[in-house]
C-alpha cells in the first residue's frame, strides 16, 4: 500500500516546529521508523508532517554533574556506538543495540520512541527504570516531566499536539549501581512480549523494577519487594488488571525472575 497524501514541513527552529504543529492534523516526525509503516498502510493520515530530525537543538548533547541531556533526535545507532558521554556505564549502548535492526537504529530516535510510547519498545521501560526525565517545548514554553508523568498508557503521553520532546535527561549512576534488563521476543528484532528492567543504585537511593510490554502503561515497583515476595509479579499484574491469561502471566514471571537472577549475578544486594 502507498501512503495517503500529506504535506511536509521542515521547520528551521523548535519555535517554528511548534507553530507548525498548531495546524489541524499536523504530526511531528523524527526518525519515522514507527510512523512510516503506518503511513504506508494508511493507518496514520496526518495532514502535514513536521520534520524534527534535523533541528540542531534536538541534536545537542550536554553533560552535567548529575547526568547527561541527550537531544531528542539522537539516534539509537549513536547510543549503540557510544559516541556520546554515557552516564550509565554502557547500559544505554547495550539497550540500543537490541532495538529492532541496524537499518532502523540508524534513523530511529530516542525522543521519537518516547513520544510514540509503545509499551513494548525498549526506551520507555529502560528510561523509566533509569529515572530519566524529558524537557518539553510547547507554545507555553518549556516544561520538564519525568518519564513516569510523560507516559500515560499504551501509545498515550501527556504531550499536547503542539508540544515536542526536545531532550532526554539521564541521571548519572553511582559506581555501585547494578542493572538488569531482560526482554523476550519471538524473533530477534521483533517486538517484545515481555520485558523487565531493574536498577539498584543504593548510593542514589534507587531500587526500581519496571515491567514493560504489557500493553498498557509499564508497572513500576520496588526491587526489594519484588525480590523478597515471590508473588510480587503476579500481584502487580493482577493489580494492573492483567491477571487473566495464565500462560501470559507465566512469561512475565519468567522474564522478571530472569532479570532478578541476572541482577543477583551482578552481585547486587537488592
Amino acid at each position: 500500500m502507498k501512503a495517503a497524501r500529506f504535506d511536509y514541513i521542515r521547520p528551521a527552529s523548535v519555535g517554528d516546529a511548534i507553530a507548525s504543529l498548531g495546524s489541524t492534523g499536523a504530526k511531528p516526525v523524527s526518525g519515522g521508523q514507527s510512523l512510516g509503516p503506518m503511513l504506508n498502510l494508511r493507518l496514520a493520515r496526518p495532514s502535514v508532517l513536521v520534520d524534527l530530525a534535523r533541528l540542531s537543538d534536538l541534536r545537542a548533547v550536554r553533560e552535567s554533574d548529575g547526568g547527561v541531556h541527550f537531544g531528542a533526535a539522537i539516534t539509537h545507532a549513536e547510543f549503540e556506538d557510544a559516541i556520546h558521554p554515557d552516564p550509565t556505564n554502557g547500559i544505554l549502548s547495550k539497550v540500543a543495540s537490541g532495538i529492532a535492526y541496524r537499518a532502523v537504529r540508524n534513523r530511529g530516535t530516542i525522543g521519537g520512541s518516547l513520544a510514540h510510547a509503545d509499551p513494548a519498545a525498549d526506551w520507555p521501560t529502560v528510561l523509566l527504570a533509569l529515572g530519566a526525565s524529558v524537557e518539553i517545548m510547547g507554545p507555553r514554553g518549556k516544561r520538564t516531566s519525568t518519564i513516569d508523568d510523560l507516559i500515560r498508557g499504551a501509545f498515550e503521553t501527556s504531550l499536547d499536539a503542539d508540544e515536542i520532546i526536545t531532550s532526554v535527561f539521564v541521571p548519572r549512576l553511582s559506581s555501585g549501581a547494578r542493572w538488569a534488563y531482560v526482554k523476550s521476543c519471538r524473533k530477534v528484532g521483533e517486538f517484545a512480549e515481555s520485558m523487565c528492567a531493574i536498577l539498584v543504585d543504593p548510593a542514589n537511593g534507587v531500587s526500581r523494577i519496571v515491567i514493560g510490554a504489557i500493553e498498557r502503561k509499564q508497572i513500576i515497583g520496588n526491587t526489594r519487594e519484588a525480590v523478597s515476595d515471590p508473588d510480587w509479579a503476579i500481584n502487580a499484574l493482577a493489580a494492573a488488571g492483567l491477571g487473566d491469561d495464565p500462560a501470559t502471566n507465566r512469561l512475565h514471571r519468567a522474564t522478571i525472575a530472569r532479570a532478578i537472577h541476572d541482577l543477583q549475578l551482578e552481585g547486587a544486594d537488592a
Binding site: 509503516p37 498502510l41 519471538r186 524473533k187 530477534v188 528484532g189 521483533e190 517486538f191
Partner: peptide, 14 residues
C-alpha cells in the same frame, strides 16, 4: 495478520 510483524517469517537468527 496483515503485516510481517504479525506473520513471522524466520530470519537468520531463527
Amino acid at each position: 495478520a496483515s503485516t510481517l510483524a504479525d506473520y513471522l517469517l524466520p530470519g537468520a537468527n531463527e
